[in-house]
Nucleic acid binder design. Structure first.
Length: 359
DNA sequence: AATCAGTCCAACCGCTCATCC
DNA sequence: TGGATGAGCGGTTGGACTGAT
C-alpha cells in the first residue's frame, strides 16, 4: 500500500528549513515557477525532496499567506464551516482569507477544539456532549438537527463543485498567464488562494443571478427545495443591489492584490524576516471579506430552520462594517434558538470572559 | 535557577485522487 | 484499461517555546 516516502533517498535533508534554503526556494520559484515539484530541488540546488519543498512553499513561504492571530470572525467561520464540512481543512481554507489549511488545522486542534470541548460541545458533532442540542431539547430542534445534517450534505456537495470550478479556473489561468521571470509562478495556489475566500460565495451568487437552476447555486437549493426564497431578497444570498456593487468592488480589489506578489517576494528576498514582512505588507486586520461570516451565519440560520428565514439583507447591511456582530444576528428572537446562535453565543461569551488574546 | 508540564506549529508521513502514457 | 507518477489532503509528530512550581 502506498509508495515509499520520497525523502528516503540518501542525502536528502529533513527537518526545519534554514533561511538559506528558504532563499533558494523563493528565488527559484520567483524566477521559474515551481513547475514539477519533484524536479524542483535539483534545479534549485536544494537537498530536499519535492514534497518538502511544496509544503514549505504552500505553508510558509507563499507571499500571500496571512500570518498571526486569527480574528474572531475567522474563528467563527472555522467553527461554522467545520460543522458543515468536518475535517476538510482545504475546503475550509478556501473560505478563509489567505490562511493555509495546515494553519487552520493547527488552530482548530490547539484552540477551537479544546474551547468547544471545554464548553461542553462535542467538537466532532458540534452538539452538546450530553447528546442534547444546545439550548433546546424539543422536537423542533431534533428536526433542525436532521435538517442540518441533510443540508450539510448539500453544502458539502456545493463546495466540492465550487472547488472543481476553482481548479478548472486555475488551470485556465495558469495557461493564459504569460510565462516570464516577472510573471506570477504558474500553477501555484495563489490565484485561487487570494481570491477564493469570497469567490466561492461570489460564484454562488453570480451563478444564482445568471442561472437559478445551477447545481452549485445555493439559491437553487433554497428556492427549489424548500420554496423559502424570501420575497425581500434580491439575490440568492439576500444581497441588495447596493451590496452587489460592494461585492463587485471587493472582488476587483482582490484581483489587485495579486499585483502585490512580486513586490512582497522581493522584500522577502532582501533578507527580511518572513513573518514580520508578511504581516506588515499583507496583514490588514480587517477580515478579507467582511461580509463572509455574516452571510454564513444567515445562510446557516436558514439551513437550520427554513421557517425562520428572515430579511437576510440585514446581514449584508451589517456586514459591510466588518465588525463581529454575528452573535446578535444569529441569536434570533429568543424562541427560535438554533445551533449557531448557541455555539457562537457561547464562543463569544467565552471569549469575553477569558479576555481572549484576540481582543 | 532548575525542572516540568503544557502549548504551539512547522514539518513529516501515509494515503487518496488525478493525470498521463 | 491499468500501471506509474505527481500532487494534494488530513493525521500525527517532535522540537522550540512559555509559564508554573
Amino acid at each position: 500500500m502506498g509508495r515509499s516516502p520520497c525523502c528516503d533517498k540518501i542525502g536528502l535533508k529533513k527537518g526545519p528549513w534554514t533561511p538559506e534554503e528558504d532563499e533558494k526556494l523563493l528565488a527559484h520559484i520567483e524566477e521559474h515557477g515551481h513547475g514539477s515539484w519533484r524536479a524542483l530541488p535539483s534545479k534549485a540546488g536544494l537537498q530536499r525532496c519535492g514534497k518538502s519543498c511544496r509544503l514549505r512553499w504552500t505553508n510558509y513561504l507563499r507571499p500571500d499567506i496571512k500570518r498571526g492571530k486569527f480574528s474572531l470572525q475567522e474563528e467563527q467561520t472555522i467553527i461554522q464551516l467545520h460543522a458543515l464540512l468536518g475535517n476538510r481543512w482545504s475546503a475550509i481554507a478556501t473560505h478563509l482569507s489567505r490562511r493555509t489549511d495546515n494553519e487552520i488545522k493547527n488552530y482548530w486542534n490547539t484552540h477551537l477544539k479544546k474551547r468547544l470541548a471545554k464548553m461542553g460541545i462535542d467538537p466532532v458533532t458540534h452538539k452538546a456532549t450530553n447528546g442534547a442540542l444546545i439550548g433546546t431539547e424539543d422536537v423542533k430542534s431534533a428536526k433542525a438537527a436532521a435538517s442540518l445534517s441533510h443540508m450539510a450534505q448539500w453544502e458539502s456537495a456545493r463546495l466540492e463543485a465550487e472547488g472543481r470550478l476553482a481548479r478548472e479556473s486555475k488551470m485556465r489561468t495558469a495557461v493564459s498567464i504569460p510565462t516570464s521571470s516577472h510573471a506570477q509562478p504558474t500553477n501555484t495556489p495563489n490565484s485561487t488562494s487570494i481570491a477564493s475566500p469570497c469567490l466561492g460565495m461570489l460564484h454562488a451568487w453570480q451563478g444564482a443571478k445568471l442561472d437559478l437552476e445551477s447545481p452549485t447555486s445555493t439559491l437553487m437549493f433554497i428556492g427549489s427545495n424548500s420554496g423559502m426564497l424570501p420575497t425581500k431578497v434580491t439575490t440568492s444570498l439576500g444581497m441588495s443591489e447596493s451590496n452587489s456593487a460592494m461585492w463587485k468592488q471587493r472582488s476587483d480589489e482582490l484581483e489587485g492584490k495579486e499585483n502585490e506578489w512580486k513586490f512582497i517576494s522581493k522584500q522577502k528576498m532582501q533578507g527580511l524576516e518572513g513573518k514580520e514582512r508578511g504581516e506588515e505588507i499583507i496583514g490588514c486586520e480587517e477580515p478579507w471579506f467582511p461580509g463572509m461570516v455574516s452571510v454564513a451565519a444567515c445562510f446557516t440560520d436558514m439551513l437550520l430552520d427554513g421557517s425562520s428565514v428572515h430579511d437576510t439583507s440585514e446581514c449584508w447591511g451589517e456586514s459591510s462594517n466588518g465588525q463581529a456582530e454575528n452573535s446578535s444576528q444569529v441569536s434570533g428572537d429568543g424562541e427560535s434558538n438554533n445551533y449557531w446562535s448557541g455555539i457562537l453565543g457561547m464562543v463569544n461569551s467565552e471569549l469575553s470572559s477569558h479576555s481572549s488574546p484576540l481582543l
